[in-house]
Design a protein around this nucleic acid. Structure first.
Lengths: 388, 388
DNA sequence: AACCGCGGTGAATCCTTAC
DNA sequence: AGTAAGGATTCACCGCGGT
């Protein structure tokens, strides 16, 4: 396991196993021909060519996103944002990126078993192109999955919405082909509720983030929790998982832990080295432990603006404190305005009282019929109505 | 408002207003030519042809995505695309959908102002194709937004993840083009945290869901809260919003409420009828309720020198950063001097910190009695006093 | 010991106006 | 059109060192 081999060394095997011949081999024969637990050196399309047809159960791919970043970016405190500027993420045009995408997807398709499935992760920069291309190649999308990051990087310049998620596509080989989906495992993992298409997970940081000389070893290391859920959901124990963009080997580490076989492709020797050492250290779980990891459910935070949007509090509503010392009017964005001063329910409450802070939910009240209620009461109603 | 007109009736106008001629008209002239508050009858590509170039501030589109509905597909030239339901022919079906998509997106692009923006909503069936196509046409994606449904329909057969979200794409006209984004309003709406790319909103149900004879009037009616957030974020009061797939008029209803102008296209007379009645009943909010928190950038610009001239900050005043790592003295012309270095409040702050830039208004502080205040506080006072 | 403040950082298509 | 200057802008989490 973890051994790095040269693509070239598989040259002979490639010829022997390609084409229909492979289907005449038994499953066990086929498996013996696969470089299980190895990181293939070189361009992923080339490397995949060394693998036989119809031999892999699942492909997980984290391709370059083609970010097309502009100049430097600094945080409001002046510190510099460490961007992804590596050569491997640079393409000359959408066309060039599409060609690259079509190339590796076609190889992945050849290598996949008829009932295998494909996962790809990406952002809005590339995921629409990837999705359209894989549909063109005959893949059948089963779900798109949203990874909602609990701790994304903010938008420092206040120019757009915080980019707080990434998208994964899960696809089968065709409309009629079968695929593995461990429904019960997912439901158990999710407190006996069906697992949804949005997954709330933190980004990879802390001890899990691999470092070399104090710097991150890879700019885009994915969290193990993400791969954990992917594999638990759509592979069985002993299945073969191929990752064409292996990087620092998150896929390999999680596969080993969960008792899946793995094959990686990675052209940067530095990443291969880091991944090999990482996976070496990983210990397989025993079977009983595999089902114990539980997903945390977080209490939903409700913004006052959401109540306004949803009509629980109408713009124009007059609100006031309990002693009616101050009055304010609700505006469309959930701000309050009062006599030339305005702000959020919390900020305006604080400003008017001259206090450092204020809980607007309990400070401000409104009339409901002839009752006087705090904003908090409207929030309770909203939570009841939108509960999962 | 709410009147339904025939596309054909605009035929003459169409010729007169198309092309470069439109750009020579004043904004007010142009607006008079637009069918504001009307639902254009017919295929949306045809209907959009009746609108002048560069005349619309925002397009919100909820296109059909069911690839089996061949009857919904028309080529850009208006000709009908035969339904292709054979599973072996999915490629052709995608191609027809792409053609249709390219057709309406191209018209939307022509009609949009140079600094306008486009919203499209879809699911994994179509959104990847739409996203790739709009990139190909030159649109520049600003965000992809996830509408995370609080109450999605479960996956009854337990064969996949619960499809609990839809995807929206927000795009500007090009990489360099500007666009409207009401950052402060969004931050306020989200309790003083940046609005993220994942929006948690309930699906449209209950009293909001339009019914006819006890059955839902439209199969995919969108919640008003979704349109509310879209319009509040990316349009200003009085802006023109075009919806090429108007359906039961959620876009029109919310636009009217928020003081935006709207134009719809809808080929089904039943939907036009329902939408017209619905929008008729909608009441606009009054102006003060529509007002939202304003960006600091929109406040009149004040030179620091003006504060010195007016005596709000006296020459010779010692200013310092919050941690008192640096000190400087105010000179008569509004520059600062510190230990042989000098410059504007911004330039000197940047120089001393070795930072690429610095906001001198918030960086430098001064003593006022025994309080320490940022220069920004003096600017606020000056602005209040010199308000017109 | 537990808590607090500070510094660091993460797949990011991240400014606007005047001259 | 290009350049220079003004000045607006951040959330969650982790580790460390001091109290």
């Amino acid at each position: 396991m973890g051994q790095v081999i040269e693509t070239k060394a598989k040259g002979a095997a490639q010829v022997a196993h390609k084409g229909k011949a492979a289907s005449r081999l038994t499953a066990e024969d086929l498996r013996k021909l696969l470089p299980l637990g190895e990181i293939l050196d070189g361009d992923c399309i080339e490397a995949m060519r060394s693998l036989p047809d119809n031999s892999v159960d699942m492909v997980f791919a984290d391709p370059p996103y083609n970010l097309q970043l502009g100049g430097d970016l600094n945080r409001p405190d002046g510190s510099h944002v460490d961007a992804v500027t590596d050569d491997w993420d640079h393409f000359d045009s959408f066309r060039a990126y599409d060609e690259f995408t079509r190339g590796w997807l076609a190889e992945a398709r050849r290598v996949l078993k008829p009932n295998g499935s494909l996962w790809v992760i990406g952002s809005y920069h590339n995921i629409f192109r990837v999705g359209a291309t894989l549909q063109d190649l005959g893949f059948w999308i089963l779900n798109d999955i949203i990874w909602r990051k609990t701790n994304p990087m903010p938008n420092f310049r206040g120019t757009r919405f915080t980019n707080a998620h990434e998208t994964l596509i899960w696809a089968g080989m065709g409309e009629k082909s079968r695929y593995t989906f461990n429904y019960r495992a997912m439901k158990t993992l999710n407190d006996e509720l069906q697992m949804r298409s949005d997954w709330v997970l933190p980004i990879c940081s802390g001890a899990e983030r691999l470092k070399e000389n104090g710097h991150k070893a890879h700019p885009t290391q994915k969290p193990e929790s993400l791969l954990y859920r992917v594999m638990l959901a759509t592979t069985n124990k002993g299945d073969v998982v191929l990752d064409p963009f292996f990087g620092t080997g998150t896929t390999g580490a999680v596969a080993k832990r969960l008792g899946r076989e793995w094959i990686g492709c990675e052209r940067e020797s530095k990443y291969r080295r880091v991944a090999t050492a990482r996976i070496e250290k990983e210990l397989p779980l025993d079977e009983s432990a595999i089902t114990t990891m539980q997903a945390k459910r977080s209490a939903p935070r409700v913004a006052f603006g959401a109540l306004v949007e949803a009509g629980y509090v109408k713009p124009g509503t007059v609100v006031f404190d309990k002693k009616r010392r101050w009055e304010a009017t609700v505006r469309a964005d959930g701000s309050l305005v009062s006599n030339k001063q305005d702000g959020s329910i919390h900020a305006l409450g604080a400003k008017l009282q001259g206090a450092p802070s204020c809980n607007g939910w309990t400070f401000w009240h409104f009339e409901d019929g002839n009752e006087i209620k705090p904003l908090d009461a409207a929030r309770d109603l909203y939570r009841l109505a939108t509960e999962d």
